[in-house]
Amino acid sequence: MTLHRHALCTIFATTLAMATSAAAEGSLALFANGEALATEGFVAPELTRDGWELRFEHIFVTLAGVSALQTDPPYDAETGGTPAATITVAFEDAAQMTIDLTDTDADGRVLLGTVAAPEGHYNAVTWSVVPAQSGDWAGQSMVLIGTATRDGQSVDFTLTSSDRHDYICGEYVGEARKGFVTGGAEADLELTFHLDHVFGRLDRGDADQMNIGAVGFDAFAAGGVQQIVLAGLHIGHVGEGHCAVNYR
């Protein structure tokens, strides 16, 4: 009888432990997006800072080293440095992945992957934009293909960049806080590419700090395949939150 009790207790404890263990893990989905500027383009009033309308066929981005982190204390992207990660989950099986920011789901997002993740708040993300190792655009980290129009003149363009950017981002900032994984449930996070940091926005005015740094499109008005230097433009964000960036 006592033995039976012990056995029952052991089974109960094991079941409880398994249930507790299962409850301690959920899943985390990671998306990328280029906002409406990627899917709908730069259309009035949101033309480029020099007045071009841009529509994109493809915006290829090659990513590597994508991970979500729980950090304590929260990572301060303004200070930079190494995040104090307590838990890290990685989002890629392969060494790198190439996505197209114009090929999105109904919410304008590209799913990078979903992974099992321990419970907690994933309040930091690390990732790199790297030159593709293979494919049509091998050697390029970002390729923007589309059509630009101004004053009745249209040009087809392909802008390529081989720059490597390494991002360490703090908490996602947006309409809602994200990244809270609870047992058995799915949370999500986003990498956000701010294309207006590249081309600027006419509706923001010349004095806007973003427009001062933006390249605009005049330099590419000849169309065709041209190189674009993206270093220093702070394209990568987490929603509206900023990241520490290292360009190589």
Binding site: P74, G170, V173, G174, R177, H194, D196, G239, G241, H242
Partner: peptide
């Protein structure tokens, strides 16, 4: 506690 501040596509969060 967390305090999030957002305006015109820019945002930050403090703790």
């Amino acid at each position: 506690w967390a305090v999030q501040v957002r305006q015109a596509g820019h945002g930050a969060i403090g703790y």
